[in-house]
Every structure is written in structure tokens, then in C-alpha cells.
Write a protein that binds this DNA or RNA. Structure first.
Length: 359
DNA sequence: AAGTACAACAACCGCCTTATG
DNA sequence: ACATAAGGCGGTTGTTGTACT
């Protein structure tokens, strides 16, 4: 019966976008906007319920309020979100969840509705592509991301990184790239917790990652570890934390081995070389480019991810699934190594039930 | 050029909280 | 203390624009 009434109303010329009280719904016209703006500028909004009648609008008060707060308010900043705003949203969402109004209070000129829409249409997808769960802000555990490993490497575009200062500048502007590296590091770190997993890495690497890309990744990794001065590598360093630290960091103590210096491998790393990166074959870090900064030394041997693999991770921990940390933890100290590790152990548990290589 | 699929975003809906009498 | 109105909030839907076939 209500449908019949609506049909009749449509036939009689009434817009279908009206409610049962005859109040208009749907998109606002410029004329309506003008009426609303004019009225509020003269009288303030007062009671929203009373406003439409006083302003000469055939809308409900709620609709007027939403139109004003989400679109017409003079202090609203429109246009694309900046990278800084993007990062703030991600950080706050990691802490607050879908509390859009709370997030909006930290972004002057942005409405909760706008932030919510931006999250749902852009940021959620972006995080997923980076291998981050947009709900938990932790790396995804599903094996689908591994099937994209070569693409992740390619996208990270390691080949263009030559000068460490260039790296710093790029890192500041490319959170996505950092995250991709982080995902790879996490995978490798936890897989490396046991000799049998190292075999799995070798299998994975040899079967799905072009050698030159792997080399570039390891090179990049070495430099990044140096940048994260004093930290113990990506798996313990949140992306957010890096983004905050990088602009303020002092001269990076980068590891720059001499030409032809061999890099010890996973299988035989002695733990004394911060650049000991090898996955199944021998790699050498080339001499620094002529424009590279001099006097770059390793902060400490323990900084290397591979050193961590050998020295930090206790394979017995794999059975401990407890974790409360997130990858995008804005409060860096809330994230500890063990939590990060245990998370990736979950990943390994899943991985162990899959035949290698993953395709 | 037309049809379809998808993305982006404005607006709505319904529930919850707060303010007021 | 309670009832009711008003406002706030988050989830969802509908419309529009664009890319693709």
C-alpha cells in the first residue's frame, strides 16, 4: 500500500525524494544552500528543528544540520587530503578505531563524514595493498600477500636508491614503500627463526623473486637499518614512528661496506657484521656512490635484521600467540619485539600448512 | 556511441547520548 | 528520577562521474 501511494504521488508530480511529510530529501540545490547559509549567518542556527521553517526550507532540521556541519560551514577545508593528514588519520584510527568525530577534532577543517568517506574509499584500500589489516592495523596474515611478493618488491622500486640522503627524502614521502619493506622484513624475520624456515625462505626467494630485486631489497634494508638509529630493525619499528623520527634524525650512521666486501649469509652469519644479508647465495654491497656521505659506520652489529634473526628470536616463542601491538602504532613504545614476533608467528603457522612455493 | 562496472562522496537512517523541564 | 526533545555519531545507501569494454 505505501508503494502504491508513492507511485500515485510520483504520477501526480511529487518528487520521489520526499518523505511522507512532504519534506524534501536528497541532494541540496544551490538555492537551498544559499537560504540556509543566509539564515544561519543572520540568526545562527538556534534550534535545528525550528530552522527549516524560519529559513524557508522544505527540509527537516536534521538534514539542515548535516548540510551545514558537513558542507556549508565556512571553516571547512575542502579538497584533497594531504599526506600529513592521511598519516594523522591512520595513526588516530589505530588508536581510536572508527571514532570519526574524535579523529576529526585533530584535523581542523575536516568533518567526521569526510574523514569517514576518505577512510572507506582510499585509506582502507591503501592499507590492504600494503599488507596491513585496516581494522587491527597489524600486518595481514593471509597468504594472499605472499603471492604478491614479487610485485611488492617491484613496487618498492629499490633500484632507484643510490644516495642515502635521497633515501631519507624518499622515505619521508613514501609511507607505502616503507610498509612494503616492513612486510617483507616481517616475513623473513619470522621465517628465519628456525633452520627449516630458512630453507623455506630460500625456496620462496629462488622461486618467486628475481635475484636483482632481492639484492636491491637487501641493500635497501641495510641502509634502512642504519637510518633507524639505535633501533633493532623494521619488525620492531613502527612505520609511524619512523615517519615521525626521520625528519628529526641526526646524521645517519649508515653501514657502508667497502667494495667487494662479502655479506655473510643467513646460514653462516657470524653476527659480527651488521650487513650480513644473504638468502641462499652470495651478495656484495657495492662501494658507495661518489656523492654519498662519508664516515658512515654501523651503529651496532645487533642492528642487522639477520643478527636479530640469529640472536633475538627464540624459536620456542613461536608457540606463544599473545600480542597486543599494531604495525601502525603511533605510540611507538606500545609495540615491543616479542609482540611483533608472535604476530608473525601466527603467519608462519598458516604458512607451514601451505606447500612451498606459494604461487 | 552505448552499456557496464566501479569509485567517490553527499546524504540519509537509526541508534545513542545529552540536555532540559 | 523520569520523560522527552535535540543533537551527535557511525553505518549504510543513493547518486553521480569516470573508466573500461
Amino acid at each position: 500500500m505505501p508503494q502504491l501511494l508513492t507511485k500515485l504521488q510520483e504520477m501526480m508530480g511529487r518528487s520521489p525524494s520526499s518523505d511522507e511529510n512532504g519534506l524534501k530529501k536528497g541532494p541540496w540545490t544551490p538555492e537551498e544552500d544559499q537560504k540556509l547559509v543566509d539564515y544561519i549567518q543572520k540568526h545562527g542556527h538556534g534550534s535545528w528543528r525550528a530552522l527549516p521553517k524560519l529559513a524557508g526550507l522544505n527540509r527537516c532540521g536534521k538534514s539542515c544540520r548535516l548540510r551545514w556541519t558537513n558542507y556549508l560551514r565556512p571553516d571547512i577545508k575542502r579538497g584533497k587530503f594531504s599526506e600529513e593528514e592521511e598519516q594523522i588519520i591512520i595513526n588516530l584510527h589505530a588508536v581510536l578505531g572508527n571514532k570519526w568525530s574524535a579523529i576529526a577534532t585533530n584535523l581542523p577543517g575536516r568533518t567526521d563524514n569526510e574523514i569517514k568517506n576518505f577512510w572507506n574509499t582510499h585509506l582502507k584500500k591503501k592499507l590492504l595493498q600494503m599488507g596491513i589489516d585496516p581494522v587491527t592495523h597489524r600486518p595481514r596474515t593471509d597468504l594472499n600477500i605472499l603471492s604478491n611478493l614479487p610485485q611488492l618488491l617491484a613496487a618498492a622500486n629499490f633500484a632507484n636508491l643510490t644516495n642515502p640522503w635521497d633515501n631519507v627524502l624518499r622515505l619521508q614521502s613514501d609511507a607505502t614503500q616503507l610498509a612494503k619493506i616492513q612486510v617483507l622484513n616481517n616475513i623473513i624475520q619470522v621465517l628465519s627463526a628456525s633452520p627449516s624456515n630458512i630453507e623455506a625462505i630460500n625456496h620462496l626467494v629462488s622461486s618467486s623473486i628475481p635475484e636483482h630485486q632481492l639484492y636491491e631489497y637487501l641493500q635497501m634494508n641495510s641502509k634502512l637499518e642504519g637510518l633507524v638509529n639505535g633501533s633493532v630493525g623494521f619488525p620492531t619499528q613502527s612505520l609511524t614512528q619512523m615517519q615521525v623520527n626521520l625528519p628529526n634524525f641526526e646524521i645517519p650512521q649508515l653501514a657502508q661496506p667497502s667494495a667487494s666486501q662479502p655479506i655473510n649469509g643467513l646460514k653462516n652469519c657470524n653476527g659480527n657484521n651488521s650487513d650480513c644479508h644473504q638468502l641462499g647465495t652470495s651478495y656484495f654491497i657495492p662501494p658507495p656512490p661518489s656523492n654519498a656521505l662519508p664516515n658512515l659506520v654501523s651503529p651496532s652489529p645487533e642492528c642487522s635484521i639477520v643478527s636479530q634473526i640469529e640472536n633475538k628470536i627464540n624459536p620456542n616463542d613461536i608457540s606463544n600467540p599473545s600480542s597486543t601491538s599494531t604495525t601502525f602504532e603511533p605510540l611507538g613504545d606500545m609495540m615491543d619485539d616479542e609482540a611483533s614476533d608472535s604476530y608473525w608467528k601466527d603467519f608462519i603457522e598458516q604458512a607451514s600448512s601451505q606447500p612451498w612455493p606459494i604461487s
